[in-house]
Design a protein around this nucleic acid. Sequence first.
DNA 1: ATATATGCAAAGCTTTTGCTGAAGA
DNA 2: TCTTCAGCAAAAGCTTTGCATATAT
Lengths: 153, 153
Amino acid sequence: MGRALERHEVERRLRELGDRCRQAGMNLTPQRLAIYRALVMATDHPSPEALYGRVKPRMPSLSLATLYKTLEALVELGLLRELPATGQRRRYDAKLDRHHHLVCTHCGSVADLEAPALDRVKPPEDLGGFTPQHVSIHVLGLCRDCGPAGRSH
Amino acid sequence: MGRALERHEVERRLRELGDRCRQAGMNLTPQRLAIYRALVMATDHPSPEALYGRVKPRMPSLSLATLYKTLEALVELGLLRELPATGQRRRYDAKLDRHHHLVCTHCGSVADLEAPALDRVKPPEDLGGFTPQHVSIHVLGLCRDCGPAGRSH
DNA sequence: ATATATGCAAAGCTTTTGCTGAAGA
DNA sequence: TCTTCAGCAAAAGCTTTGCATATAT
């Protein structure tokens, strides 16, 4: 389900980070590169803490403050999206093309769902002044690890 | 968009709260009644803080701790759902029948979207071990107050 | 009467902010 | 060289927990 990204694609995205930083008058720092790379390669929509655990080993000086600031900057640059999620942690998704999500109501995991049939879903024309930008379909339920048998709490 | 609930319906739901509490061996307290009533009547998917501001005036002794415990209990009873949302606040929805949401990426507001066409959306059969329970469609974009002109940030 | 719940205060997490030294362009 | 940034530490939200008292049944 979490298909690995090809090397070219990762590199293309990292170049895009460089371009957008330049356009925005922002520096391309090793921290931003490392954080964005980890996001691009992730298939699990990591929380800030999870991401920190992934990047920190390769860059021990990295601080959580920088991680948060970087996430905000990447969202601002349009390279990253914050996912609507339940629970107390934020979740991020660097996969910007249209896709959907399987959200476990028990453990909070979020997996990608590729479903061409769902891609055809369009919002109604009249949304009463709301300007639609993106449609995200969440299938809520129990992931393989949590249910239906493992329903504990 | 936020159609007012009829009195009967509200009363039916409050009776259902009583029933479920009894079944679960839980007491039906004034706090639970007041909190659930506020949730049933709300059309805006309130955060805990917003809900507190609504119930507290009618019940000044209410504590935030009780509010949080009650929200958890109502979710557990199946009378309330936590919405996937962006940002740092939780959002709750006591409207359990199928409907969808307009989520503002700028201010975080969440409005109901009634769209029969969207109700027909079904997840694929094979979800790789995931047990679907509920489909929620989020239309992300800018609400009337935030955009498209009002894009500031 | 007895189990369950409330409210308080304190603690726990996650996220944000101010500031200074460091580094990118 | 000049602006932007990383890291630190402290603060600020939001949510949870422990416990004593109060309440539902």
